[in-house]
């Protein structure tokens, strides 16, 4: 009896996991650095995300080389020297959403607790965001700060007036039911 019971649990567990998933259809990831000499912004629309409404888990992946900069050479330096995108091609987040009422159709302020991985360094973070449920879609918006030092991204002293130590990251995702 015991064996069958466990087998049943083990076999059905993945089914729960794969229920009610949403996948991103559009994305917008922007980062912004404000410094005395210049403000730098870069935008990426090639990110992907999955949201599991059942387990309230969320994950997203940002391809580093797809950030668009106003200055082409800056984009090259960003990839080559700062993010080392050949070695670390993506930045990812994987976490659990807390404070979400699944039955509400109103826009909700939520938090996501999980791991943010940038430049090969993984950190436990809590990200605040806004979740807007719809008929067959969900919209998620989040703004959070990233401290470069935490992710071993070194800024040479000669450009400390050009690049902020703390970068503001804005993430927007439009999801559709999978």
């Amino acid at each position: 009896m015991n064996k069958t019971f466990f087998l049943l649990i083990v076999l059905t567990f993945p089914i729960f996991c794969f229920a009610q998933k949403y996948k991103s259809i559009k994305s917008y990831v922007r980062f912004y650095s404000e410094a005395p000499v210049e403000n730098i912004e870069a935008v990426n629309t090639k990110s992907t995300s999955i949201f599991d409404a059942g387990s309230k888990r969320i994950a997203f992946s940002v391809p580093i080389r797809d950030f668009y900069f106003a200055k082409a050479l800056m984009q090259e330096h960003f990839n080559e020297n700062y993010m080392e995108s050949e070695k670390y091609p993506t930045a990812t987040f994987s976490g659990q959403i807390v404070g979400l009422d699944p039955n509400s159709s109103a826009t909700q302020q939520v938090k996501a607790e999980g791991k943010l991985s940038i430049h090969g360094v993984e950190k436990d973070v809590v990200i605040e965001g806004e979740l807007k449920p719809g008929e067959n879609y969900i919209k998620v918006k989040s703004k959070f700060m990233v401290k470069l030092e935490d992710y071993n991204i070194k800024v040479p002293s000669i450009v400390t007036y050009n690049i902020s130590e703390i970068i503001e990251v804005t993430v927007l995702f439009d999801y559709a039911k999978l």
Binding site: I9, F13, C17, I58, A59, S61, T90, S94
Partner: peptide, 22 residues
């Protein structure tokens, strides 16, 4: 153990799904 395995998998399977697509 099996359950634990599966539930930890569930944590990262979303990322894995994303990576498979990319």
């Amino acid at each position: 153990l099996l359950l634990f395995n599966l539930s930890t998998m569930a944590q990262d399977d979303l990322l894995e799904m994303l990576e498979e697509e990319q």
